[in-house]
Simulated assay, not measured.
Amino acid sequence: MQEEFTALVSMREGQGRLYVVLLNTTDAWPEYCFGSTVPTLTERTEALSLLGFEPVPGAVWEWTEDSEIYGDPASPVVLIAAIRVHAVQEQVGR
């Protein structure tokens, strides 16, 4: 069974960022930056592929929102999405 990781997309201050959380490592987390709009499903999938990952079978993106300033209902919203992913395995003969 392949090791699974969590990929996150955050939209903050007009900038989108996708990164894969690699726990128990000192390596930098793989990261991809988007423009100012919320990335589509296709854009997120392509970004994961560029980073060498793909969603695990049956996984779906789960969206939530947070605020930049905790406890302030007038604070700008921060959108966060998460999905379970695994590294793409190289196929023999390719």
Rank of each mutant, 00 (worst) to 15 (best):
M1H: 05
Q2R: 06
Q2I: 00
E4I: 04
E4M: 13
F5H: 03
T6G: 05
A7D: 00
L8I: 13
V9A: 10
S10L: 08
M11K: 15
R12A: 11
E13K: 14
E13W: 08
E13R: 15
G14M: 07
G14P: 06
G16R: 12
R17D: 04
R17P: 04
L18Q: 05
Y19G: 05
Y19W: 10
Y19K: 11
V20D: 00
V21G: 05
V21T: 09
L22M: 04
N24E: 02
N24S: 12
T25I: 00
T26I: 03
D27S: 07
D27Y: 01
W29F: 05
W29Q: 05
P30Y: 01
P30F: 01
E31D: 04
Y32N: 05
C33M: 05
C33E: 12
C33R: 00
G35S: 00
S36F: 03
S36Q: 12
T37W: 08
T37K: 14
V38N: 12
V38G: 07
V38Q: 11
P39M: 03
P39A: 08
P39T: 02
T40L: 04
L41A: 13
L41H: 09
L41V: 04
L41F: 00
T42C: 12
T42M: 06
E43F: 05
R44G: 04
T45A: 13
L48K: 06
S49G: 13
S49M: 05
L50E: 09
L51Q: 06
G52D: 00
G52C: 01
G52E: 01
F53Y: 07
E54S: 08
E54A: 09
V56P: 06
P57L: 10
P57W: 13
P57F: 08
G58K: 12
A59L: 05
A59S: 13
V60T: 12
W61L: 11
W63V: 14
T64G: 14
T64S: 15
E65A: 15
E68K: 15
E68H: 11
I69W: 13
Y70D: 15
Y70Q: 13
Y70V: 15
D72G: 10
D72I: 10
P73Y: 06
A74L: 09
S75W: 10
S75T: 14
V77D: 10
V77P: 11
V78Y: 10
V78W: 07
V78G: 11
I80F: 10
I80E: 10
A81M: 13
A81C: 14
A82I: 11
I83K: 12
I83F: 08
R84K: 15
V85W: 00
H86W: 05
H86K: 12
A87H: 07
A87Q: 11
V88I: 09
V88G: 06
V88W: 01
Q89A: 09
Q89K: 11
E90D: 02
Q91H: 01
Q91T: 04
V92A: 12
R94Q: 02
